[in-house]
Design a binder for these strands. Structure first.
Lengths: 171, 171
DNA sequence: CTCTAAACTTGGAATGATTATAAACTAGAG
DNA sequence: CTCTAGTTTATAATCATTCCAAGTTTAGAG
């Protein structure tokens, strides 16, 4: 909604151009709850913007991060960086199995942010409060699988793969 | 101190071998407060273990992370992942200018962790509570420099560079 | 409108952190 | 001491991300 507006504002105020590509990226970021990676953004937008370049996605993300309106979350067990357009203090929960990242409201993050701001002496520019573990779904999954061995090879995600919602509406 | 012991224990209990390389890495992790990257560990150990391979450092770090005794912090504005052998809930502060990462005690992280554990339904495996910004030193630095322009090119860190303690003995 | 400089976008090449692989080594139980 | 599965190592391979050199647009002035 107005999160889109907020991002657009930020671009305007910085004297930057509002190109169709930027607008598309901003809209996607503002309305999704998926905490997408650059690759995910690229793939979701390509149908509508066939000429879009991955480089543009990266550029735009960098710009938005520099403007302080988008947060970098780091990876969720995959090898790509996830982004979050919600810069209000909140907790992210990343599942290291399905690589999905969700938001979690918290009454303590605000206090924590306050505390850090006042006691650190740092000029704070952003935060990354991510807890990782197994989501309920993947726990069930794991319980079913008799754990084919304790040592799991790590596999890299291929350029084309998606992290996808497994079935219905969820979040 | 006994943080070294804790890590060694974890390896033992998992039935893994305690090789000289692993011991060295564990000791370094347990005693430093630098939140090093794999590269940093490699370079700090190379003098004493000339045959050490970067791959071993990565392998060992992965092992320790899997065992849950080491945390992954993500990058500090550089392009490499930082690790933290302190898995007790605490806040990390990363300076995006000098790329140093420090610890910050906090009375709220505990509450936050509790909250997440009970309300999320996730099986928590670790956390990454990192605030980033400019440390006092770099703020002064920035104030001095009349900001040569708002747009700063990003530069990649070269393989050989170090993030170093500002005054201490450098290698 | 029209023009223009600066700001953007783009495809492809380049970079470099991290992984995979295969061969050589060794911790540690018997 | 003897084995052998677990480890290390050097090196190649992978791939997210950045860089680059053009080609395009944007937005403001005329």
């Amino acid at each position: 909604m107005d999160r889109t507006e907020k991002l657009v504002q930020a671009l305007r105020e910085a004297g930057l151009r509002l190109t169709p590509q930027r607008l598309a990226i901003v809209r996607l970021l503002a309305t999704t709850d998926q905490h997408p990676t650059a690759q995910m953004i690229y793939e979701q937008l390509r149908p509508d913007y066939p000429s879009l370049s991955l480089a543009t996605v990266y550029n735009t993300l960098e710009t938005l991060v520099d403007l302080g309106v988008v947060n970098v979350l780091g990876s969720a067990g995959d090898d790509a960086v996830h982004y979050d357009a919600d810069t209000d203090p909140h907790v992210n929960l990343a599942c290291i199995s399905c690589h999905r990242v969700i938001d979690l409201p918290s009454q303590y993050v605000h206090a924590l942010e306050q505390e850090v701001a006042t006691t650190s002496g740092y000029r704070l520019l952003g935060a990354r409060v991510v807890y990782y573990g197994l989501c309920p779904d993947c726990q069930r999954e794991a319980a079913r699988q008799p754990a084919g061995g304790r040592r799991h090879r790590r596999r890299r995600r291929r350029r084309g793969e998606h992290h996808q919602t497994q079935s219905g509406s969820e979040e």
